[in-house]
Design a protein around this nucleic acid. Sequence first.
DNA 1: GCGTTTTTTCCTGGTT
DNA 2: CAACCAGGAAAAAACG
Length: 258
Amino acid sequence: MWSPPFISQPSWDLGVYLPSELDFEDTIVYQSPEVLLRSFNINTASSAHRSESELFDLINNDMEAISTLTDSDILSIDDNTFDTMDVAAYFSGQCTVASHIPIVDNKKTLHDNKPLPVSSNRAYKSQKKNYVLSSELCIPSKFMNIKEFHVYDNTTGRFRRPLLHEFIRLILENDEYSHIAEYIDRKRGIFKLYQPDVVADLWKQVKGRNSDNNMTYDKLARALRYYYGNGIMYPSPGRFTFRFGPKSGFGISWRPAD
DNA sequence: GCGTTTTTTCCTGGTT
DNA sequence: CAACCAGGAAAAAACG
């Protein structure tokens, strides 16, 4: 089961309005979904019948969409609107309100001829199940798939591209990539790259460094071996096989689900 | 601009 | 022999 791509979960403090984190003078953008949720005073316990993680996931995956919102868009929304509307649909440009919730006026597409992108497969599936979307919005772009790998950085309060070991972990946590890489010993954090070349190519895309060269397993493996020296990884016998060390947070701040 | 961190690139040598 | 693995060296890229 796909879980939100957060290496470190932000501390949830929903329902607390933090005006200091807002600057209505600017023409957007709220970098952090966490701040966004706070800003909107969203109470996930009572709104849109979504779990925190699911809502956060959707918000996260639609950061591109959110970034197109302006302050006036947001300020035009009544205070408690977000508690009664479907946030995911809203940020998808659909603005559909769950059936049992009263329709809120003036929730048309925020930007006339610029459909907000649907970010992830997850969000897409979720929306397809519950809402009617125009077909053009249902195409998960390569770009947005990459954004699924972005992680929330607690120290900066922003999303960023993952470090290599974080990237590896995200792949391992996502069943969609189980044919590419998988734990072979979850309890000990030992994993194997079944398709090292694919992992390397993915890594190249996710990292998005400015380089004209291709990423190869050889170079990726060298980077992983650098982790041996600092406890982020341990060597593990077998081809394409590595093991998470405590400095990666394994067994401390996280552990693979059984 | 600078210092640090994290890779990226390349390579030698040993192993499978 | 090809493909890996272990690391050294150096440089690049990103970031605070």
